[in-house]
Design a binder for these strands. Sequence first.
RNA 1: GCCCCCAUCGUCUAGUGGUCAGGACGCAGCCCUUUCAAGGCUGAAACACGGGUUCGAGUCCCGUUGGGGGCACCA
Length: 506
Amino acid sequence: MKARTRFAPSPTGELHIGGVRTALFSWLLARHTGGEFFIRIEDTDQDRYVPGATRRILEAFDWLGLTLDGGPDHEELRSMKTNEDYPGALDDGEYRGVPGPFVQSHRLHLYKQWAEWLVEHGYAYRANETPEELARMREEAQARKQTFVFREEMRLRTDVRPDEPHVIRMRVLPREGRTEFDDLIRGRLSFDNSQIDDQVLLKADGFPTYHLAVVVDDHLQGVTHVLRGDDWLSSAPKHVLLYRYFGWQEPKWAHLPNVLGTDGKKLSKRHGAQSVFEFRDQGYIPEALINFLALLGWAPGGGDEQNVFTIEELIARFSIEGIGSSPAIFDYNKLDWLNGVHIRRLSDEDLARRLVPFLERAGIPIDTAERFEKLLRITPHIKERIKKLTDAAPFVDFIFGEIETPPPEALIGPKMDRESAIGALQATIKLVRAFEPFEDQPLEQAMRQLCADLGLKPTQLFSLVRNAVSGKSVTPPLFATMAVLGRGTCLVRLERALDRLLRAES
RNA sequence: GCCCCCAUCGUCUAGUGGUCAGGACGCAGCCCUUUCAAGGCUGAAACACGGGUUCGAGUCCCGUUGGGGGCACCA
């Protein structure tokens, strides 16, 4: 069955990592079944609306590589500053049959129309209690230790005219009994109707609440599977009831378990990165983030113990049956590991390109073809040494900039003295000055021979040279590094180190 | 308070009545090794508790405990 799914964020801020997981599962389902996936912007709360948030959400999807088949996916839309800029004219059916608009504030007439339909058919009624009055009623209910559930007979004014400000509330019917439905992840669910509120569907400002808007839109837009966070579970019966009132076919429901922070509480700021862009800026790559998020609540099952997946493999393997029902804790350790794994799978060229902005941010501009060439040459050697793109800078900074000549202590290796260090350095300089070809392997061979000649262990000679040439004790493999550095730079640094040693007190 | 959901190593999980309860991250040790990594091998580490059902329960049922979510003219 081809699934048509959607992700329906409200433009109130940055795309949260938990939201990305929900979107990913919906996206995977659509891709796995050869169906369609689109984004719908739920901007029905005028107070919480953040201009530009829609653009940021779209950018996040671009970065993640989650492609869209319908909804705002055009250049014009990506560049829109506010949802008011949304060009509804693009809704001409070119989105593979998913009808727009895809921004709810542009669909107000539809919600109004269907809310009125419910009133006409006895499934909803008008009310105009003020927020203050409702708050009072709530307090009273609480004083009696009861759950507050609004009912028609609780209205303070029953003569609400259509032309005065009012809301439209759904009538929960029947009053007794239970509302049941199936959830793909939880199985059969059952809620007591007496506990379901006569929810406001259309607000006094003419905007719908979420409950009306999702149902109307999901139906009109042909959504087959509603994947959403666990937190919607308790309002699901309201939506089920609405589908039944309208006589529309229910979509399949799938309420995903929450993603929790390390302390088992809902993921929030204090747990570290939260928005997609924070992860991106911290050096995570989308391949890893997607792999990690997929594994958070989903497993291939069937005895398959694979952990590392490409996006294509995920599409091929994904199924709703593989989604677990218990909440998952976000494990940054595993994310780091996966990020390293996926970095190692990148081609040198690709990795080098992705590294550029991070190096520039670290004060290492890669602004010439020559510098990029150097980066490209060292990239295979740092590939397996970094977990995040931000880890690269300390491995390459000495290649692109000046270094401080290390102090004698750093040059004289274990079980060596000043004299032997000086001798070793002089011999190395002599070798480096004339050696051909100045490349990784040959250089290593020659230097190993030098070790033997000098009666030094590789560790002793190499760490001395490493320090002299890079100014640090941890670097990518020494000879590849020297080759990239170039004979000239190596000589200058070796000589400065020698000079430093010669001047040191003995 | 009421309603709903959840429960296997520290974490992500496999398991669909009979398994030495498997894998992955992390952790420890060993190997490899010019540093740091990566890689390989080994190890420690779990069925929340109590009742049932059954010849036999991690697997089915009930309860307890614990955790999470919801109870808006917010999504």
